[in-house]
């Protein structure tokens, strides 16, 4: 039965179900339990992650399976890689995706490559959960969206959910997948609420979700920007334009077919991606359509992305940095050739 719960609760529920189902599932990261060895601290008072996403798991599963780590990402992310290769099914939390700078080797050169380098004789069933996203006034080192970095690397799978229901099903699929998965959680989505089924279910990788159907324009949006796209679609509908909003949900593998079929129907594509624009998922999806769907296009592809600059701190600047429905509308007006679309 479905209930309305938050994105954060959906993730927590997924981890709880996974840990109940398989004792090889462990959770490790900075403060994922919180306050390890602090005598006066009861487990129900422990943080459960800096955002509380893993709260309560230590009470149910104990500190052997919910492991607080030192602030040493290379050490514990690397440990999670070989814990996975030797029989566990770890969920490692990289608190902010920006911290990948401290442990990229362990992800890029170890996790991603062990299976291939070993001729298929190893598997790395590891899930790395990590926070991303701007809009939290967290500035340049805690706000990036670095999923393109991982999408570029063969051997990794990349998941970016946009709704509580997707977050739960995709996280369960990630945990029980036999390859290393980088699971992105937009920190500004933790409190959004949505209908989520109870119990165990998974959502397959490489299967985009059409969040809204339409015949006039395709918008492919990543993570939180799915909501920007849906807002824009609603505003466009008022102008008589029906927009199809596609959420790829997994960037690696990528559901190329759903994107191409949609563009074949609408003839127009806007990609909304809050990451920086160069060598990004936006350029990747645009290149896909230019390469395999050029004949479907009635107008140039448009990309609504962050500019080529770090995420600024000041709210006045950060609001300029992020995609908005209005920016999407301006692009739509241009490719549809109807200036009246843009709100005055």
């Amino acid at each position: 039965m479905a209930r309305t719960i938050s994105f954060s609760t959906a993730l927590n529920e997924a981890m709880r179900l996974a840990m109940q189902k398989d004792e090889n599932v462990i959770l490790l990261g900075e403060d994922v339990a919180g306050g390890a060895t602090v005598d006066h601290l009861q487990d129900d008072e422990a943080w459960g992650g800096v955002m509380g996403v893993t709260k309560g798991l230590v009470q149910e599963f104990g500190r052997d399976r919910v492991l607080d780590t030192p602030i040493a990402e290379a050490g514990y992310i690397g440990a999670a890689v070989s814990a996975a290769a030797t029989g566990l099914r770890p969920i490692a939390e990289l608190m902010f995706n920006d911290f990948i700078g401290s442990c990229l080797d362990e992800v890029m050169n170890q996790a991603a490559k062990l299976r291939y380098m070993f001729g298929g004789k190893a598997k790395v069933p590891l899930t790395i959960r990590t926070m991303h996203g701007a809009g939290f006034r967290a500035a340049a080192q805690h706000s990036q969206s670095l999923y393109a970095l991982f999408t570029h690397i063969p051997g990794l799978k990349v998941v970016v959910p946009s709704t509580p229901a997707d977050a739960k099903g995709l996280l369960l699929a990630s945990i029980f997948d036999d390859d290393p998965v980088i699971f992105f959680e937009d920190k500004t989505l933790y409190n959004i609420r949505g209908e989520v089924e109870e119990g165990f279910y998974t959502i397959p990788f490489g299967k985009a979700d059409i969040k809204r159907e339409g015949d006039d324009l395709t918008i492919v949006a990543i993570g939180k920007q799915v909501h920007t796209a849906l807002q824009a679609a609603k505003m466009l509908q008022e102008k008589g334009i029906e927009t199809e909003v596609i959420d790829p949900r997994t960037l690696s593998p990528l559901d190329e077919e759903t994107i191409l079929l949609s563009v074949a129907k609408t003839g127009r594509l806007i990609v909304v991606d809050e990451a920086n624009p160069r060598c990004s998922v936006a350029t990747d999806i645009s290149a896909l359509v230019a390469d395999k769907g050029f004949d479907y296009l009635d107008a140039p592809i448009k990309m609504i992305t962050a500019p080529h600059c770090p995420v600024p701190f000041s709210p006045a600047l950060e609001d300029l940095y992020l995609p908005t429905p209005e920016k999407v509308l301006r692009a739509a007006a241009e490719i549809i050739g109807d200036e009246t679309i843009v709100p005055v």
């Binding site: 050490g75 690397g78 890689v81 070989s82 814990a83 996975a84 030797t86 080797d105 170890q110 004789k121």
Partner: peptide, 27 residues
């Protein structure tokens, strides 16, 4: 490498083995 022999791989990255050894120890 030969994981069946417990050999978790020669490694092209200097220092790459420390965290991997920790993970195998954790398992």
């Amino acid at each position: 490498a030969d994981v069946s022999k417990g050999m978790l791989g020669a490694n092209g990255i200097v220092g790459g083995g420390f965290p991997l050894a920790v993970g195998a120890g954790l398992t």
